[in-house]
């Protein structure tokens, strides 16, 4: 495998795509939204339970490529305990990672999300990595309409 491919499909990414965590419906959900990537037809629904202004649990369902599934899997883990504002800030940092590439301090700021550092070499795959995030943020806004990556 070339280095760039190895950066994209890191072991952690492949593992999350094959055995996604937090996959399935969420009992007692307070918010949910569907993310749609019209380019490839991928759909991911994110379910959230907000409690005291923080995410108590997040799960996802749907189908997608390895990158979008792994991203949803990792994301639903790391957002636990965070407020919507903290999630927005985290997404901004994550978006910078997948569009521009890794920078100093990512490991601290992004934690597990840093495994998506290889995505920036693949501009066509940025939407795959962001799909679940768009759905999550749409869910937290309480909007019912599906959100599209376009």
């Amino acid at each position: 495998m070339s280095d760039e491919l190895a950066d994209l499909y890191q072991e952690v990414v492949l593992d999350h795509s094959k055995r996604p965590r937090n996959f399935g419906p969420l009992e007692g959900e307070t918010h949910h939204a569907e993310g749609l990537n019209p380019l490839c037809g991928d759909r991911i629904t994110v379910h959230v339970r907000l409690d005291g202004g923080r995410v108590a649990a997040a799960r996802f369902e749907g189908s997608g490529c390895a990158i979008s599934k792994a991203s949803a899997s990792v994301m639903t883990g790391v957002v636990k305990g965070k407020t919507p504002a903290e999630i927005d800030a985290l997404f901004e940092r994550f978006h910078a990672l997948v569009t521009e590439g890794p920078r100093l301090g990512d490991d601290d700021a992004l934690g597990k999300l840093a495994v998506f550092g290889g995505v920036h070499d693949y501009p066509t795959r940025v939407k795959c990595a962001s799909l679940a995030w768009h759905a999550l943020r749409q869910a937290l806004k309480g909007a019912a309409a599906p959100v599209s990556t376009e």
């Binding site: 070339s2 491919l5 499909y9 490839c40 490529c65 390895a66 990158i67 066509t124 795959r125």
Partner: peptide
Amino acid sequence: DVHPHDAGTILDR
């Protein structure tokens, strides 16, 4: 069960 987009990316490389 490889998603076509993943395969497509690797083929491109």
